[in-house]
Design a protein around this nucleic acid. Sequence first.
DNA 1: AGCCCGATGTTTCACGTGAAACATCGGCTC
DNA 2: GAGCCGATGTTTCACGTGAAACATCGGGCT
Lengths: 306, 306
Amino acid sequence: MLPEPNREPGEPESHGADPARRRGLAKGLSALLGDAPAAGPATGGARTVPIELLGPSPLQPRRLFAEEDLADLAQSIAAQGVLQPILVRPDPKAHGRYEIVAGERRWRAAQRARLHEVPVLVRELRDVEVLGIALIENLQRADLNPLEEASGYQRLAAEFGHTQDAIADLVGKSRSHVANALRLLTLPGEVKAWLDAGKLSAGHARALIGTNDPVALARVIIARGLNVRQTERLAKKGPPRPRTQRADANVKALEHDLAEAIGLDVAVRHAPKHGGALTIKYKTLDQLYDVVRRLKGDSGPRVRSL
Amino acid sequence: MLPEPNREPGEPESHGADPARRRGLAKGLSALLGDAPAAGPATGGARTVPIELLGPSPLQPRRLFAEEDLADLAQSIAAQGVLQPILVRPDPKAHGRYEIVAGERRWRAAQRARLHEVPVLVRELRDVEVLGIALIENLQRADLNPLEEASGYQRLAAEFGHTQDAIADLVGKSRSHVANALRLLTLPGEVKAWLDAGKLSAGHARALIGTNDPVALARVIIARGLNVRQTERLAKKGPPRPRTQRADANVKALEHDLAEAIGLDVAVRHAPKHGGALTIKYKTLDQLYDVVRRLKGDSGPRVRSL
DNA sequence: AGCCCGATGTTTCACGTGAAACATCGGCTC
DNA sequence: GAGCCGATGTTTCACGTGAAACATCGGGCT
């Protein structure tokens, strides 16, 4: 079983992109890669083995290697050796050989540096565990589209039994992000196709989940070029609760009445439980002064000029 | 000289991320890669040459190849051949050989597919032109930090004489984005270090440009955890133009007077040339009705209930 | 049956990014 | 000197993303 990710509650955020989150590993996976107590039955600590006994795993779905990074890493390894052991398991198909689970880049760079031996951490891992590690690494890439990401989360949940909280920690996102990504998978195929095609964003698509006719709404959104806030509001409209609908109608009537009375655009944002805000748009200072006079009543103090 | 990018005015945008922009090439570079009239002196159209005569360029700064993608591409090439010619120039150091300018991935995949010949488009390109192409490809990567991006734009401007408009087209961004990125380079080193460290976002940093003491302001922003809007407002405060300051003071005074008079929170967003908006926050319906009565004057029609 | 709690579903909206809009500059032409 | 225009500088704010907050569910326990 993959390690349960350990989540630090209430961690403060830095501004903008979090470099540790963007570039480094989520904590759960770091635990696996040798710095923390290991998962899976350990077969001893780190030791060195001849580099030619190692090979990449056929279970790994995708690996990116920047040539420049490999060259830089090779130089560093030539100077200082491999500082962090490569995680391997005994190769199920070749006795005496090892299959790389994590650290293939360092292995390739060590070859470039012409090392003869590299340090390894050997773990007995089943195929499903190796696949899980590979899945997590893939999910940490920055260029997956929302449905690819959601599919990965789905697999982690279904095949590895992870909770949403656990997945969130493994990939460095919030639980609600994972939950909302998973919900995208429940959309009709047509809507998912528009999402894939970039005609809808994940925010638009998410707002359509649970509506009566997401395909029809999606067509409206695309045709009218609605933004996500507008989409969220549109998705809420059908089937409206009578009270909310009546309140909305009353708010609209109020806005209209008031606009007629004062001759300016009026908007009321009403939230039954929290009060709200009334906004009046004015074009000239005279209009503003008129509004202020009305608000103060005729006996109010004279308004100073701007 | 690199081709001038051709910009389509008024192109409609799709929702969310634009796949053509995210995955494909900006139009300027596409023009260079063989589909449109070529840049540089052409030495004939596409022709095939033995694959072993090609080699990668030492001028290319970084190349990413996903193993899975290479494998897939190799399969496709094995089935259908190399459909788009690889852009090469005669190797300056090895007569009779070619240096790959663009298309190295296809070359590597063609090797995997064990092709003997590949189609190439040969161009006489100077080092500076090859570097320019490499720079543009690098800038199209998604994971550059703001200062790396800005440095790339700076080089395209300084070394290749591109206007901001031209650079914008080449990298698929707006001219103002390029301009604002370049402005980040004018910040003091300390502020740039905080930007690199993720303690400030590009938006925060940008707001500090041109202020009297960006380092001191940056410290305040980090210490108080200000958001970008707050940062923008803070950056505007020192040294204020007298008229703007007076207008702000008057707006503040008006807000205060009005809030006192009606007993509710009041905000005025005033733009001298465009009018503005007066917003009143209410907590209960009675408060709303009171405001409406005042606005209508005492003789107004009775307000219907919500 | 009721309560609690972990897990999940859903909604709202603050946020930084990125572009539109506006401002300024300098070279060129008349 | 005035006007124009391309290029650049600067400010404002709409946008979708992502997380907080809230809502719901179901299993376990009493």
